[in-house]
Amino acid sequence: MSGRDMSGREAILGKLRVAAGGGSADAARQEAVEKRLARPPRGLIPARGQLEGEARIALFCQMAEAVTATVARVRKADDVPRAVTHYLRARNLAPRVRMGADRRLKAMNWSAQKSLEIGHGPAAPQDEVGVSHAFAGVAETGTVALVSGKDNPTTVNFVPENHIIIVDAKDIAGDLESVISRLRRKYGRGEMPRVLNLVTGPSRSGDIEQTMLLGAHGPRALHLIVVDG
């Protein structure tokens, strides 16, 4: 930290301390803060975010379609590669996709799709289609949660014009708070993946005359494949 940062820090915190606690960080305030950080209150969860079972998955699909994502449901993980090829053909896209080395994607039967070309690693400008596996889904808003990591490049989520995201039905939570709890279990208390992307539909902009148009800087199309089994 440079000298300027240091003096700025002390000046700002000093002023805040005076305003908040009359100059001191007393024990009661300290305790209130530590308690909240250690045991985050869950807050108010709308009824819409508390559905169970098939109703929850149906809401997830419905909410995603409402924000112009397309949704396909398949029975098992090995049906995914065929569903991907089918989607590319239906949209008249070249049989080429970019994906990370996610073990759930790797375990799928891609070799059966003879014509499909798969590039691994981060996305480049010429990539037309990215494929990712979601960490979770959120039924309340039709959102998918993607985490970065050595097998999951973030560029795959934003650079290609088309994005296909695989989400396991068992990973679809009712609300974002449940996904946060799962993140804590996986990464540890107070820890996060470098990036958590919450994606709800394809990119859009309303900056010209308030008209919402699809396909701003991120993907123009978002296709979700929900794996039931």
Binding site: V67, G100, G121, P122, T143, S148, G149, K150, P153, T154, T155, M192, P193, R194, V195, L196, N197, L198, V199, T200, G201, P202, S203, R204, G218
Partner: peptide
């Protein structure tokens, strides 16, 4: 559409 949570720089092994 995008809510992005970022925590620190690239980590060992991150591809981007």
């Amino acid at each position: 559409v995008y809510t992005t949570l970022s925590t620190g720089p690239r980590r060992p092994g991150d591809p981007d």
